[in-house]
Design a protein around this nucleic acid. Structure first.
Lengths: 125, 125
DNA sequence: CACACTTCACTACATTTGTCGTGATATGTC
DNA sequence: GACATATCACGACAAATGTAGTGAAGTGTG
């Protein structure tokens, strides 16, 4: 039910597929090679592991090649990672976390306005 | 210069020592056993690894036993972990991160007020 | 059809992490 | 001084991660 654990390298692969899916192994490789510099087999290994973990689904097309599609929603994974990060580093407390990032971030006045609005909704909700 | 990578289990050990230092291995064990259920040797291994990584310093006292003290500041480690988390999950962008946590957190009106103030300072700074 | 190229399934192998166990040493207690 | 205890340094070992190589099998091309 919960999104599976996705390692750092695997996360890059997932991003490529959340961005656009389905994609074959070679397609994903083409996308990631510039940034990651990975050999195609490396990408294939990551894809296989992600399928085993249930994070991806494979679809075999007519010509026998396979394409990969996310089986979990990005938002769910973000949620899970965020939760675990907050636990680990901020002892589960949202406020210190927000304080940390709100103090360190460089934001435009517009973004600040938007965030303040979100915070207001938070209160009233 | 940069804080070393600190794994999840290791982080618990660091927390114990940031909380109070110096402490001997047995003291740290006593602190962590209830929550973690670790054998003393497990704690010792983690301590040793943290020393190797340069996250802890050892001080041998008169009686030959050793006590551990953080060699890196918690704030610096939090900073590093936060940065890498933001990179990984939010592609380095602070705003979506803040949106995520601001939307999901349960905050008291007071906390909301405080955060809004922080955001304002952010703008003017 | 024979060969080159693509796609895969397997295997491999070093590191890091999580969890200890063993055996030597040092110390406090009778 | 002999024994129970506490403390350490080392070694162990499985699972997860990062990063590929090999060899078989399918496919398009002359």
């Amino acid at each position: 039910m919960n999104p599976p654990d996705i390692s750092e390298s695997e996360w890059s692969v997932m991003e490529a597929l959340w961005e656009s899916a389905p994609q074959t192994a070679s397609e994903v490789t083409k996308v990631l090679r510039p940034t990651m510099g990975w050999a195609e087999n490396t990408v294939r290994t990551l894809l296989t592991r992600l399928v085993e973990k249930g994070a991806l689904k494979v679809k075999e097309n007519a010509s026998g090649t396979r394409a990969f599609t996310p089986a979990v929603k990005r938002e769910d994974c973000v949620q899970a990672e965020s939760e675990s990060f907050m636990q680990r580093i901020f002892r589960g407390a949202a406020k210190p976390l927000l304080v940390h990032f709100a103090s360190n971030a460089k934001l435009t006045p517009d973004e600040v306005r938007e965030l303040k609005k979100l915070l207001d909704q938070n209160t009233t909700k």
